[in-house]
């Protein structure tokens, strides 16, 4: 009963906030609706017993990615009516993509239920005795170790690439050299003089 109520609550909110993401006039509101959609998707995942994935979704997407989204949108001052102007032009391609995706999902589900591809392995059962975070770890670090490390490597390359592409040496900006700042002592920076009246000080 409570599960059913929670499921329909989360599911309705995901769909509603996803729809509002697209239709919201203000881009910041759109990102906020997107965040709400992420959040409710996490709730759905908790309901099916994938609490680890749910937490990762919140930490990674809501906690980090969406924050950056929000900032970009807040600072860029995107004019959405300008973006919308291309709607009719691209509507056909968009519809085609949507149909393609739907077809792919159908094919995937058809293959899934057709069977004969190692029935014992195709499902992803959560073992009753082990929390799913442990079950996931057992698989990731044993059978799928190389795939997992490969994914890590791809991310590392992407990170380095992003840094290389965006980093630029700025001429004329003052760099802070923390080691030098810390090494500085009062006697290096100050001087105690007793000038005679009217003589002034050499700076």
């Amino acid at each position: 009963m409570i599960q059913a109520i929670a499921f329909y609550l989360f599911a309705t909110l995901v769909i509603a906030s996803a729809a509002l993401t697209i239709t919201a006039r203000n881009p910041v509101h759109a990102v906020l609706w997107l965040i709400l959609a992420f959040f409710n998707a996490a709730g759905l995942m908790v309901l099916v017993g994938a609490e680890f994935i749910a937490m990762l979704l919140v930490i990674v997407y809501v906690g980090a990615v969406a924050v950056l989204f929000l900032f970009v949108v807040m600072m860029l001052n995107v004019d959405f009516s300008e973006l919308r102007s291309g709607f009719v032009r691209y509507a056909g391609i968009g519809a085609l993509l949507a149909v393609g995706l739907a077809a792919e999902i159908m094919v995937a589900f058809g293959a899934w239920s057709a069977g004969k591809i190692e029935l014992a392995r195709r499902a992803a059962p959560t073992p009753e005795t082990v929390p799913n975070i442990e079950a996931l770890g057992m698989l990731l670090y044993t059978r799928y170790l190389f795939v997992f490390e490969g994914a890590g490597l791809v991310l590392l390359v992407a990170m380095i690439g992003a840094i290389v592409l965006t980093h630029r040496e700025r001429k004329g900006s003052r760099q802070q050299n923390v080691a030098r700042q810390n090494a500085r002592r009062p006697q290096d920076a100050t001087r105690n003089t007793r000038p005679t009246i009217g003589a002034g000080v050499e700076l």
Binding site: V58, F71, I133
Partner: peptide, 25 residues
């Protein structure tokens, strides 16, 4: 007493930033 307690703490504390960003904007 959930299995992913520590992740829950991280997730919830990463949400705290929204209150501040939204206030600022």
């Amino acid at each position: 007493n959930i299995n992913v307690g520590l992740l829950y703490v991280l997730a919830a504390s990463s949400l705290g930033v929204y209150g501040i960003i939204l206030a600022g904007w």
